[in-house]
Computed example of a mutant assay.
Amino acid sequence: MLGIDIKKESNNLVITWQLSRIEVSLEDIEDVSFDNTYAGQEKDAIRIGTPYATTDRIVIKTNSKTYILFTTNGQNILKKIQSYL
């Protein structure tokens, strides 16, 4: 598997990257958007992927945590996540 993979299982958004698997309840997601900063504005965010200058940054805000996904496929991943909500 190359890059970040996103899928829906039951009522969870499942994010896999390398050997990591993160499950986020779809009910807890408050906002999904792009972030144009290099490392992301949220200092406490959980960062997934490798931050290069040319990668897109997708921010997933939940009730309790913020996730930043670093990917070269940002537009497709954003659309996919939004389709699950």
Rank of each mutant, 00 (worst) to 15 (best):
S10H: 01
N12S: 10
N12A: 05
V14S: 03
V14W: 06
I15W: 04
T16E: 13
T16Y: 06
W17D: 09
W17E: 08
W17N: 12
Q18E: 14
L19Y: 07
R21W: 01
R21I: 07
R21Q: 15
R21C: 09
I22D: 11
I22F: 11
I22T: 14
V24S: 05
V24Y: 03
S25R: 08
S25Y: 00
L26R: 02
E27Y: 06
E27I: 01
D28H: 09
E30L: 13
D31N: 15
D31S: 10
V32Y: 01
V32A: 05
S33E: 12
S33N: 11
S33M: 06
F34N: 07
F34M: 14
D35F: 09
N36V: 00
T37M: 01
T37I: 02
T37Y: 02
T37N: 05
Y38L: 14
Y38I: 10
A39V: 03
A39N: 08
A39R: 09
A39T: 04
G40W: 12
Q41E: 14
Q41M: 09
Q41T: 11
E42V: 06
K43F: 10
D44K: 15
D44R: 14
D44P: 00
A45C: 01
I46T: 14
I46M: 11
R47W: 08
R47L: 13
R47H: 04
R47C: 13
I48N: 01
G49V: 02
T50D: 06
Y52L: 13
A53T: 12
D56G: 03
D56S: 15
V59D: 04
K61Q: 10
K61Y: 00
T62R: 03
N63C: 07
S64M: 00
K65N: 15
K65W: 02
Y67V: 05
Y67K: 07
Y67L: 03
F70I: 02
T71A: 03
T71L: 03
T72D: 11
T72V: 11
T72M: 13
N73M: 12
G74S: 13
Q75E: 15
N76R: 14
I77T: 08
K80Q: 15
K80H: 13
K80S: 12
K80W: 08
I81R: 07
Q82N: 15
